[in-house]
Amino acid sequence: MAETVKLFDAPTLQRMLTRMAHEIAENQDQGNQVVVVGIQDSGVPLARRLAGLLEKIWGHPVPAGTLDITLHRDDLDQRVTPQLRPTEMPCDITGRTVVLVDDVLFSGRTIRAALDALMDLGRPGSIRLAVLVDRGHRELPIRPDFVGKSISTGAGERVHVELTELDGRDLVTLVRE
């Protein structure tokens, strides 16, 4: 029987994002070259929220894009036919600082695919990784630059991120199988 443990509620999640935005801002000076890119699908609303917070800090518009990594996955033939979602870049990413955003960092394979997908779109000056939750268990040499919260999890556990834009509420839970 699956057991669900609440990790972060809506206000906590918002505080985590605000702190991440400030860390990104500190790291990036004026942010004129920053484009925030969310990985489909949960990364997308997070990227939009981060871009909104950065706009307030920097006082200028911060472009936000979406990235679908389906075609770059390494497990395509082991899955049910996946749904392709749009990749939309608001500007040419060549030379810019891309802040890549996802909800949960786990094996690192999604990020590997995202890096390849980004490289097909242009040649960013640099790529930074922002994740809401880092749950460990990396299978590739990938580490995040900005983290909402690092938590230790068991292999049989799942971190479940719900976001208002997709699920009607903000909530992060840990599910034990």
């Binding site: 909800d103 999604t110 971190v159 479940h160």
Partner: peptide
């Protein structure tokens, strides 16, 4: 990917 697959997520109608 770390988050669990959303239950009831609309799977594409293709199984051929």
């Amino acid at each position: 990917m770390g988050s669990m697959a959303k239950t009831g997520e609309s799977l594409m109608a293709w199984n051929r």
